[in-house]
């Protein structure tokens, strides 16, 4: 077996030499996850705002439902989406299975409850006076909402970062509905899984390094935001 140091060394040289296949995989990962976050965030934050701001029957049930959904394993989301998108499934005519769109959809489903749950607690922590101040100074309900969101922006950023961290590191759903097709639906995590099964460790290590660095960056920004949050309170 290739020694760990040899493999790691080759991994680093793959990274710095700008290996085309490797960087294609990395850009697919980021492309898919950023799209998913981009599409989910507005809807999720609106939902979170509605849950935090309006009193309506079933609100508490919904909040605890979203907290439950946080724990749904990615493979279950993958399986469900697979069955829905498969040619024998209800949306089979769209021919979306094993496409990037399917991966984006899966990651949207995965990120939605995180964004709602964390967004909700951030928005809930917002002072009632924010909304009242905005409203009384003439803000429309929409503008008042943006003002409230702006006041708890660090909490909302934290939600987005946490959600992004989860979906870019997720493997089960992407593998199932993406199919791990090279230059198309192979992202960092599915590539690592594949490279290991092929016995090619260098690329796996290189991609693992990318994920680790990303996790570091995300965690660092999260803790910075938490710090800001604490200062704000």
């Amino acid at each position: 077996m290739e020694s760990l140091t040899d493999a790691s060394f080759r991994a680093l040289s793959l990274l710095v030499s700008g290996d085309a296949e490797l960087w294609a995989i990395i850009s697919i990962s980021f492309g898919v996850s950023l799209q998913a976050i981009l599409y989910t965030t507005p809807v999720a934050l609106l939902t979170a705002y509605a849950l935090a701001h309006f009193e309506f029957p079933g609100r508490r049930t919904l909040v605890s439902l979203f907290h439950t959904l946080l724990a749904v394993p990615a493979v279950v989301v993958g399986l469900t989406l697979y069955l829905i998108l498969s040619r024998s499934g209800p949306f089979g005519d769209l021919k979306l299975l094993f496409t990037q769109t399917a991966m984006v959809l899966g990651q949207m489903v995965l990120s939605f409850p995180i964004l709602v749950a964390m967004g909700h607690s951030a928005l809930q922590s917002a002072d009632q006076r924010v909304w009242e101040t905005a409203h009384t100074l003439g803000a429309t309900p929409l503008r008042a909402m943006f003002t409230v969101m702006h006041e708890v922006r660090y909490g909302l950023f934290a939600a987005v970062i946490a959600a992004f961290g989860r979906i870019i590191a997720e493997v089960g759903c992407s593998m199932m509905v993406g199919g791990n097709i090279l230059n198309y639906t192979r992202n960092i995590t599915t590539a690592i899984a594949l490279e290991t099964s092929k016995g090619q460790f260098a690329q796996g290590i290189a991609l693992g390094i990318v994920l680790l660095v990303l996790a570091l960056v995300l965690n660092y920004s999260l803790s910075t935001l938490r710090h800001r949050l604490a200062m704000q309170a």
Partner: peptide, 15 residues
């Protein structure tokens, strides 16, 4: 390039 077993590749071809 699917990078997976035969059964999975057949499924992908099907889809």
């Amino acid at each position: 390039e699917a990078g997976q077993g035969m059964g999975k590749v057949l499924q992908i071809a099907e889809e």
